[in-house]
Simulated scan of single mutants.
Amino acid sequence: MNARFQYITNQDSLHQLCRQIDEDKVVAFDTEFVAEDSYRPELCLLQVAVPDGIYVIDPYTLDSLDPFWNQLTSSETQVVVHAGREETLFCYRATQKLIPNLFDIQLAAAFLGHEYPASYANLVHRYTGVNLDKEETRSDWRKRPLSNQQLQYAAQDVKDLLRLHRSMEKELGKLDRVHWVREETSRWQEDLEQFESSENWFRISGIQALSGNSLSIVRALWMWREQRAKERDLPARKVLRDDLLIELARRGNGDERRMASLRGMEHRHVKQLIPELAKVIADALDHPIPSWPRKARYGKGQPPAMLTQFLSAALAYICRTKRISPSVVATADDLRDFVKYRLDGSDPDIPPPSLVTGWRAEIIGRELDDLLSGRLAMVLDNPDSDMPIRFHRIAP
């Protein structure tokens, strides 16, 4: 089924749309972008839905998208997305602001008991019965002119967003979970902002095997690579691969001959960087070893595997009975942190784990506490049932 839309290719039309959003106080949007050839994902198309219609915006034909991004950061605008990580980042990079009233239908679906993460096509089918056409998933959205089929595909990606938002918000209201979704959305955006504004050298695959001066080198090489990638508008991995960066740091010196003998350094675009890399490494050795941002640790060692497996089964039962996706509630690490925190005691200098604060404590933390303390038991009820276990309250 075709989606009717207006195609925006000039600044006046964009301003008119922004005035419409300001009046409606609600907007849904999606993006088409290409990420593999540039330092940041290249925005190729914006699809926008407001109550009276759909708009497809061509950023290549406009002087600036700032009016649109600024409208999204207004405290009076409700913004609806699906799996909106990149959409949120496009807005943040343009404005240095988070979206105050963001509603992500993928996240909201998890709080209604649907699978997480759920695709947009699956959610649309579940709520409307419509099957979306996904033939243009691998389109090169940078090429112009765009075909009518591409534009239709783009428009369909926002056609039902506002409808799904209304339905889900109503369901969440009945379950008294609107505030849970808002809390989780705020936390998710804050994590995204921290990731965007922080040095992320410690996230490179393989860094766990490094220590001492090697950490100084890997940080210096990461910062150098980020700067070069930004200057050349290339993905960082195309400047210097992660595995080469880690190996250079592990070797711990700037000997150019040894660097040249490393497999992977023989490629022309990398080989010509060797003198520059040698200088970066030499300079790094004159700097203090950087501190490693580490995840909060609770207690000592690991809790018994059988205990966390037991609580994992309890988590599945609670989430099933309370209609919420386990994937959004807790990971295996979250359960281990919870057990260590409860068994070994708390440290006032370390923030408590996620399962004892906020909405997670409200929906699951108290029952896990009761299980650990023996006030609640988990028993086999019906082996033939989809949910063969149940909880049994222990009398004091």
Rank of each mutant, 00 (worst) to 15 (best):
I246W: 03
T137S: 13
A49C: 07
S346L: 03
A94G: 07
R142A: 12
S373T: 14
R187S: 13
E115D: 15
R225M: 10
A109M: 08
Q272G: 00
D370H: 00
N382M: 06
D176N: 09
P383I: 12
R257W: 02
S119C: 02
P326K: 05
R144W: 10
M306K: 07
P51C: 09
Y127N: 01
G254C: 05
T185E: 05
H15S: 11
P288Y: 10
Y116P: 10
W69S: 07
I246H: 05
P351C: 06
Y127K: 07
R225A: 08
S354Y: 04
L234P: 05
G252A: 04
E136C: 10
V329H: 06
V124G: 03
N131Y: 07
S346M: 06
S198D: 11
A155Q: 04
P288G: 06
L355M: 10
E169Q: 14
R225N: 10
R187H: 08
Q208P: 00
R93L: 06
F111Q: 02
Y116K: 04
I318M: 13
K230C: 07
D66K: 15
A296I: 02
D58L: 00
T88Y: 07
W69N: 09
D30V: 05
W292F: 07
I204P: 07
T321M: 04
A209H: 12
V339W: 12
M265C: 07
R297V: 14
P303D: 12
A121P: 00
K97G: 12
D283W: 01
M259E: 09
Q194H: 15
A229I: 10
T128H: 05
Q302V: 09
A395Y: 12
D255M: 01
R166T: 14
A278Y: 01
Q20I: 11
R85E: 15
G113F: 02
E184D: 13
V270Q: 07
E367P: 05
H125I: 00
R342A: 10
S327C: 12
R241Y: 08
V239S: 03
V130D: 04
D104P: 00
D243H: 10
A236E: 10
S64P: 15
R237T: 15
R294M: 02
R366E: 13
L164T: 05
L123Y: 02
R323T: 14
P145G: 03
L132I: 03
D12Y: 13
V339A: 10
H114K: 12
K97E: 15
S119M: 03
L307Q: 14
L210M: 08
E226M: 13
I217N: 09
P383T: 00
D337P: 11
G301D: 08
P352Y: 12
D24V: 00
K322D: 14
H269I: 00
S197W: 13
V79I: 09
L102D: 08
L161P: 06
E231C: 03
Q47P: 01
A108P: 08
D283Y: 02
L161F: 11
D52M: 06
T77A: 03
R225W: 02
Q78M: 11
S13H: 12
L62V: 05
W224Y: 10
A35V: 10
D140T: 08
D24P: 00
L102Y: 02
I281S: 01
R241V: 03
Q149I: 11
E76M: 02
Q20G: 15
N148W: 11
F90Q: 06
I281R: 01
L45N: 06
V34I: 15
N122F: 08
L343Y: 02
I318C: 08
S216E: 05
R126L: 14
N213P: 04
